[in-house]
Amino acid sequence: MIWLNTAAAHASTFMPPQGTEIASQYDKLYGFIVIASLISCVLVIGGLVMFALKYKRKSENDKTAYITHDTRLEFAWSFIPFLIFMVVFVWGTYIYLELRTVPKNAFEVHVFGQKWNWDFMYKSGKKSTNEMVVPVNTPIKLIITSRDVLHSFYIPAFRVKQDAVPGRYTKLWFNADKVGDFQVFCAEYCGTNHSRMLAKVKVVSKDDFEKWLQDNPYKDLASADVGQKVYNAKCIACHQLVPEASTSIAPSFLGLFGKTRQFADSTSAQADENYIRESILNSKAKIVKRVSGEAFPPIMPAFAGALSEEELVGLIEYLKTLKE
């Protein structure tokens, strides 16, 4: 079995870092299948090349052997692959069940996918966006859902992935054994900014985690600074702080507050507090035109329910500070 460990180590060169114990088990199975596949490919492709070259046509009068079948040989090459597939199946099922069976007493975090952010909610009431902080060496259970379309919560370093389905809760668990930051991707196509729906899992020591839970991120912050934090977490993927170009997927926030906005239905309005509030909570109510004259696509999610009053006010105040 030593060869298996070395093989697994080689095969997993390209795998993401192993952030959990199961990830290393996963890589062993992966290593085994890669080696088994390599051997099969060498046998099949090697046999193919060898026969093709050895029996290359010498003259147009070549006689060939008349071999129609060979029952024993055919049985062997049906049964041996079957056995290998069954080994892989049983081993794979074992890993699958490990990945899917949540230990009792796991620490629970609620996860919400919403175009194109990940929101996290802890039982203490603490919330975060695109950064999930969890304690090391603790089984963590994620209870996942979506506020709009399908998404999929994918942490490569933990070898786990689970779709976020609107209208239902799905689950995922892991037990991170290393402190550090791990990448999260959205793995189920969800529209325009699918590829920017990224987040981080921050695995910290248990003490740091307790501190983090107690910490109120908005404590002692001015309204506009609260707004800036929310902006960086939830708006930045689409609304950039550079002058708007014809290729921008969403309006720029520079100098937005107070400007007269032209809408797709040819009406216009001034961007005051009420307009900003409505745009955040229900963006489809008024669709703005681009500098080029056509309307922006109506892709912005409605944030009603996803932002607190403090955060809304913060955003409005923050927008006021952004000058062209």
């Binding site: 996963y26 892989v88 199946f89 081993w91 099922t93 890993i95 699958y96 994918y154 992935k161 793995a187």
Partner: peptide, 13 residues
């Protein structure tokens, strides 16, 4: 490899 349930969790999509 993809048919192996445990492995597909990571490879899917």
């Amino acid at each position: 490899m993809l048919a192996t349930a445990g492995l597909d969790i990571h490879f899917h999509d």
